[in-house]
Amino acid sequence: MYDFKPAADADLGEVYRDLCAAADALTAGEPDAVANMANVAALLWEFLPDLNWAGFYRVGPAKDGGADELVLGPFVGRPACIRIPFGKGVCGTAAESRAAQLVEDVHAFPGHIACDSASASELVVPVLRDGAVIAVIDLDSPTPARFTEADAEGVTALAALLSDRV
């Protein structure tokens, strides 16, 4: 049985170091990307308080054969939008720009896609391999301004670790 949890008195830097170490332990040597994303989504849920959604969108072909888009991957939370075009919403913006999106108020974000009306803030970090987006890590919270630059840095480090594992 796995029991990964941060220390109760850990500062945010330590939480993300422990999260990355746990993700490394669970994904090292495992070639199945879906299994790795599922375990990491569960770790995010366990390690980070005040979330209502944590998981992945993977880059995949559009249903109509058009340009690639984001396709729902393993996650923890309420049912979510299945497909998101690049450039649409917070996730699509992160994928198109290849840059983290730290959104204090999703309702003020132009073109926000509301999969869960309880979400108030969001952090989306692209997972890059050889400079190309292969997925995004998406975190939602019901609390406005829940995420900080330290969260963005921690999730970016996690995304770098996962770049050849998902």
Rank of each mutant, 00 (worst) to 15 (best):
A150T: 12
A114E: 12
E153R: 08
D105Y: 04
L72T: 09
A159T: 03
T148P: 04
S119C: 10
H112E: 07
L162M: 06
A114D: 14
N39G: 14
I84G: 03
R129E: 10
R78S: 15
A157P: 02
C115L: 06
E69F: 05
L139Y: 00
N52L: 03
D64H: 09
D151I: 01
W45M: 12
E46F: 12
G111N: 10
P31R: 04
S117L: 15
L72C: 10
V71C: 14
S141C: 08
A10I: 06
I134N: 01
V136I: 08
R17S: 12
D18V: 09
Q101D: 07
R58C: 11
A152Q: 08
D164Q: 13
A38S: 13
A160R: 09
R17K: 11
A95E: 05
D32A: 10
L19D: 02
P110Y: 05
A145S: 12
A150V: 13
A120M: 11
L70D: 00
T156G: 07
V40E: 02
P61K: 15
E104V: 15
A160C: 10
E30S: 13
G13A: 12
P31I: 08
L102A: 07
L162G: 00
T148M: 09
Y57M: 04
L51P: 01
G60K: 05
G87K: 04
G65Q: 10
D164K: 11
A94Q: 02
V136Q: 01
S163I: 05
I113W: 01
L44K: 02
A21L: 12
K63S: 15
A10E: 06
G89V: 03
P142Y: 02
K63F: 15
T156D: 05
R146C: 04
F4R: 09
R129N: 11
Y2T: 15
E149R: 09
G87W: 03
V133R: 00
K5F: 13
I84D: 01
G111P: 08
A23C: 08
D140A: 07
V125F: 00
E46H: 11
T156F: 06
A108W: 00
P85A: 13
G55S: 07
V15G: 04
D130I: 08
I113C: 06
G154P: 00
P144C: 09
A62I: 11
G89D: 01
D151R: 00
R146Q: 08
G29T: 07
G111T: 13
E122W: 00
A28D: 13
R165D: 03
S117H: 14
A33T: 07
D24M: 11
E104G: 15
C115H: 01
V15C: 05
A135T: 07
S119M: 04
E46R: 14
L102K: 05
T27M: 01
K5E: 15
A7M: 14
D105S: 10
G92I: 02
I137Y: 00
A118Q: 13
F75E: 08
S121W: 00
A95F: 01
D11I: 09
L43P: 00
A132K: 11
H112K: 04
V133M: 04
